[in-house]
């Protein structure tokens, strides 16, 4: 019973939107589409709570036991408490006098720069990964290298300075060879996803029950 009920629920919940997709009946649309969507929004919001509980538990545990790196857990818990308080009990945006509310201030001057910093690290990692990966080991790798160079030149104004055709060539590679390869992978992956979904829908695979 403990297993059958969730399986039945999962199977039902996965088939109802499919029915609503094809049959426009008002009742079906209301209950199989709109209501399920509303519930999905509510459940997704509650899932945050689940995550918060896990995060607080794990980090408190780490602090209590003075495990390796416990000081980072203290920082996480304090930051979480400050941000949550500002969000829950304070307003967002700008005050009448032009100053920012604490939540927006933290967001703009701490969170946003840290995020941008992390994302900008990509440029450095792309450089080191490209340095290792683009080697003319064989014919295919050489073609890959040539394609990469055309795209890299074509995506910056220097490309047009080398030759006016370079940006057009880069665009052509993006629109045709690139799009063709992307489509091949996307179609394969979409079918894989559909097949995976069917397995979950009919209960062959049940990751939500801990059975993979």
């Amino acid at each position: 019973m403990k297993r059958q009920v969730p399986i039945m629920l999962a199977i039902t919940a996965s088939f109802l939107p499919v029915i609503a997709f094809f049959f426009p009946n008002a009742w079906i649309n209301e209950w199989f589409n709109r209501k399920l969507d509303e519930w999905m929004v509510i459940i997704a919001s509650f899932a945050f709570l689940l995550g918060i509980v896990s995060m607080v538990q794990v980090n408190l545990h780490k602090v209590r036991r003075r495990q390796k790196g416990w000081i980072f857990s203290v920082i996480i818990l304090v930051s979480f408490a400050i941000m949550a308080s500002c969000g829950l009990f304070g307003a967002q945006g700008e005050r009448e006098n032009g100053t920012l509310y604490p939540f927006t201030w933290i967001f703009q001057f701490i969170y946003a720069p840290m995020q941008a910093t992390m994302f900008s690290l990509l440029a450095f990692y792309v450089a080191s990964a490209s340095y290792r990966a683009f080697r003319v080991k064989n014919m295919e790798a050489s073609l890959l290298l040539i394609g990469a160079l055309i795209i890299m030149f074509g995506r910056i104004p220097f490309g047009a300075l080398i030759h006016p055709v370079v940006p057009d060539l880069a665009e052509w590679i993006m629109r045709f060879p690139n799009a063709a390869a992307q489509r091949g992978i996307i179609i394969g992956a979409a079918l894989g996803a559909a097949s995976m979904s069917i397995r979950v829908m009919v209960g062959i695979e049940r990751p939500y029950l801990g059975k993979s």
């Binding site: 689940l50 995550g51 918060i52 896990s54 990751p207 801990g210």
Partner: peptide, 15 residues
């Protein structure tokens, strides 16, 4: 993701 965490925890426990 919290929902993924819940499923992953169950799967590891079961395994």
């Amino acid at each position: 993701d919290p929902l993924t965490m819940a499923s992953a925890r169950e799967i590891v426990k079961q395994s």
